[in-house]
Design a protein around this nucleic acid. Structure first.
Lengths: 202, 202
DNA sequence: CGTCTATTTGAATGTACTCAAAAGCGGTGG
DNA sequence: CCACCGCTTTTGAGTACATTCAAATAGACG
């Protein structure tokens, strides 16, 4: 085959990187040998609690979420993402410690993965690269901080409206019980909110 | 004066750094010229919304908190710390953007401050230093992630018990309305929890 | 189609909030 | 050193937001 299907995913990643820094084709080629492609079926897990999040994960196609399962077997979704997003348990990745989160596909999903070790080697060879990922990690921190503030200062319906705005293109792809677990309410309550304010959404 | 009072604070910082990396007296001297000491009176602000968090702040003595003031004029405490802790609005610091948080002294407080610019220069000269602060920032991220999970999966009383455990030595120094705003409940409700479970605490 | 999972409904309950007022406590000035 | 003032904490009643549980309905997929 001339263009292996993986090449499409690699190209997607290259574009993503180039959207923020300038990384030549040659330098990207050097990276390519370290990359791996992973595909997940719907509901399949990439990482389960106890495993270490060893890679940065770039979503080429599909949809992923990260969630915590508490003692009462309730799910709490920390993060969702679709094609073009980076989704990982950064806590586990950065510290190289076992995750206590599940990373799960919500659809059939294709990932491009960069192992931590290779990533850190590349930081030396390609300084722009270090900058790029530092930005990603900072972004993760800031998103978390905003969310913490948000969760404390707004009620469930306001958080839901914010969610719909932030994820307007992809809400339909996310099951409602996942949205509920992201907002921190029960599926039943989210359902009742939607009913009560039905006129608000078309 | 032989030992300027500032020297005490500098020594404190040097000890803190040395607890994780090995930084020679000479290298620390190089850092010292960039440091500044700041003292705050009780209730005074170090940073207010709109200002940029330009420094990493190490608490030599006293107690600091970072909080968000929402549209209903409710306070939400993001972080508290005492001597030996680092307290900053990392979001603003990392991105060099205006903070939307208040950083306030809860007691008369003395800080040692490292400006971002100098810090970044030192990253090149002293690689261990880069490592030290990377760790600090990662720690901030992880603490936030744990807190997010916590806030979603535990009720107010459980969160309060966790708070008491985590801050057992310093709880007495923190006004109860600040504790309440950290836990995400009203002062009245925290008070009623304390009454209801009075036998739990001595 | 039939089965499995997700969503909706409704009633009863619980957790946390609002508002108002009283009590406690700490610092300051006389 | 005590009295007063302002801020923090407590108390209680009434209310609102969100949960639990159980059952019915709707959707997805083989």
């Amino acid at each position: 085959m001339d263009t292996h299907p993986d090449q499409l995913a690699f190209q997607h990643l290259h574009d993503e990187i180039n959207s923020e820094i300038r990384l030549s084709k040659e330098k990207f080629k050097a990276l390519e040998s370290a990359l791996s492609i992973e595909t997940l079926k719907k509901k399949e897990y990439l990482i389960e609690p106890g495993q270490i999040s060893t890679h940065m994960n770039f979503i080429h196609k599909g949809c992923l979420r990260v969630f915590y399962l508490d003692e009462q077997a309730q799910e709490h979704t920390m993060q969702v993402g679709v094609e073009g997003w980076w989704v990982s348990d950064l806590g586990s990745f950065l510290r190289w410690t076992p995750s206590d989160l599940y990373t799960q596909a919500l659809e059939e999903t294709t990932l491009v993965r960069i192992p931590k070790k290779e990533l850190e080697e590349l930081y030396f060879e390609i300084p722009e690269f270090s900058h790029f990922f530092r930005q990603k990690i900072q972004g993760g921190y800031i998103a978390l901080q905003e969310r913490t503030v948000h969760n404390m200062s707004r009620d469930a319906y306001a958080r839901y409206k914010d969610f719909r705005k932030k994820y307007r293109n992809i809400e339909q792809r996310i099951p409602q019980y996942v949205v509920a677990s992201y907002l921190g309410v029960t599926p039943e309550f989210l359902s009742s909110l939607r009913k009560k304010h039905a006129n608000d959404f078309s």
